[in-house]
Design a protein around this nucleic acid. Structure first.
Length: 410
RNA sequence: GCGGGUGUAGCUCAGUUGGUUAGAGCACCAGUUUGUGGUACUGGGGGUCGCGGGUUCGAAACCCGUCACUCGCCCCA
């Protein structure tokens, strides 16, 4: 049995229709916000990701598909979208033309164990607002995510959780306080959290281990270590969300796995996705450009998992119903090819079976959910007309060929 | 990478303590109607029982391995 590589899957028409529906909504919402689409390559030099995501993140240390090309250059399939977009910003000197408002969608790759809502080739759509340091940018970007989820009818299935990671000074202070706190209990922490303490102490805060909970409860809070300006920034973001009536939940344990985040961190989560709660997540990343060797350049954005969104959709709209053309007899058969072409050139969707008797062609018309069947036989040919049968009501009418396009468009 | 569950037709599943050519419903194709679909009736095609070993006179069933899916951990969109 031929099978696709583990964690990958074929997108058959039924699925592409659903995913196109989602990206279609994204395009619409992005246009309302003045965001343009960018497409970057699905692979990059490895260091585009290792530099930007941080050497300790799981994505870099164990989840990337990497290979060497014929010249020995180290390549990686992209595990996320932001690093590539930022690289393109720098490459194309878009840093001279700010702000840049961009969105993208496409495949991403992570070498993980597949699960519900988690595969090795998956698809994300995301946005980046680069070059705007103001809290208004954060508000705009979060509002766009909210509007997308609303447009998809997911308003009641998601919850917005939000936190601040502060600026560099705040984060350094806080990290120090956290490490001091957890070091006192290091022997009692879960194995995983003992490793986190070395690599990324903030992540201990969202540990699910029961063993860690008592120490997380008593851990110092970010809000007590924020600088005044970081505090003011976050307050303004929250006030903006309130003025837009976007409901949110403060979550002081919400942190980011990737090094480049600062200030606002947010996630739209759902309880319908099994172990994977996150549908759409992002935050501010003011240091990313510099980490990658570019100029100082603030940015804020998010990414959403297409497959995860799809899991939340109850139904997607039915595609437009076609019309079927059914010739009867060899003469009509020849004529029908021409007629079909004319109708399609006149923007009428036509889909029919090319062989079989009348009955089997009618069955096909029914199967593909045609709204009408056009019957064309000897008599009709003689009279330059066709019979149009409405497949919902079963009624039929003789229509002259000269009126056919107009009749079908009514 | 770690632990649990599952794997029989395109789909949902039967298959009795191991015992003839492995079944059903739905779906598909054709006919009942040589110019009329959806309902009904009749017939037909379709299965390396995930894969590989082992036990046995005999394995879809029992044992081992492996792969895939799935639930959780980890991580993340």
């Amino acid at each position: 049995m031929l099978k696709p590589f583990r964690g990958t899957y074929d997108q058959l028409p039924a699925i592409t229709d659903r995913l196109d529906y989602i990206t279609g909504k994204m395009k619409h919402v992005a246009r309302l916000y003045g965001f343009g689409k960018i497409s970057t390559p699905i692979f990059e030099y490895l260091n585009v990701f290792t530099h930007s995501l941080g050497d300790t993140s799981d994505i870099v240390t164990k989840e990337m598909f990497t290979f060497e090309d014929r010249h020995g250059d180290r390549i990686a399939l992209r595990p996320e979208g932001t690093a590539g977009v930022m690289r393109a910003m720098i490459t194309n000197k878009l840093t001279q033309d700010l702000p840049q408002k961009l969105f993208y969608y496409g495949p991403m790759f992570r070498y993980e164990r597949p699960q519900k809502g988690r595969s090795r080739q998956f698809h994300q759509l995301g946005t980046e607002l680069i070059g705007d340091p103001s809290p208004q940018a954060d508000i705009e970007v979060i509002a766009m995510g909210w509007d997308l989820l609303c447009a998809l009818g997911l308003k009641d299935k998601v919850v917005l959780e939000i936190n601040t990671l502060g600026d560099t000074a705040s984060r350094d202070n806080y990290r120090k306080a956290l490490v001091d706190h957890f070091k006192q209990h290091v022997g009692d922490l879960s194995d995983e959290s003992q490793i986190r303490l070395e690599k990324n102490p903030l992540r201990i805060l969202d540990s699910k281990s029961e063993q860690d909970q008592p120490f997380i409860q008593t851990a110092p809070q970010m809000k007590d270590h924020l600088t005044d300006s970081a505090r003011a920034f976050f307050d303004e973001v929250l006030a903006g969300l309130e003025s837009l009536k976007i409901p949110y939940k403060l979550n002081s344990r919400l942190v980011r796995g990737l090094d480049y985040y600062c200030h606002t961190a947010f996630e739209f989560t759902s309880t319908h996705l099994g172990a994977q709660g996150t549908v759409l997540a992002g935050g501010r990343y003011d240091s990313l450009s510099e980490i990658m060797g570019g100029p100082a350049l603030p940015g804020v954005g998010w990414a959403a998992g297409l497959e995860r969104i799809d899991l939340l959709l109850d139904q997607t709209p039915e595609p437009a119903r076609p019309i079927s053309l059914i010739p009867i007899g060899p003469e009509a058969e020849k004529e029908s090819i021409k007629l079909a072409h004319i109708l399609r050139q006149n923007d009428i969707a036509l889909n029919s079976k090319n062989r079989g008797n009348l009955k089997s062609r009618m069955k096909y018309a029914n199967k593909i959910n045609s709204r009408a069947a056009i019957l064309m036989g000897e008599d009709e040919l003689k009279n330059q007309s066709v019979v149009v049968k409405d497949l919902d009501t079963g009624t039929q009418e003789t229509v002259p060929l000269s009126n056919l396009t107009t009749y079908l468009k009514k």
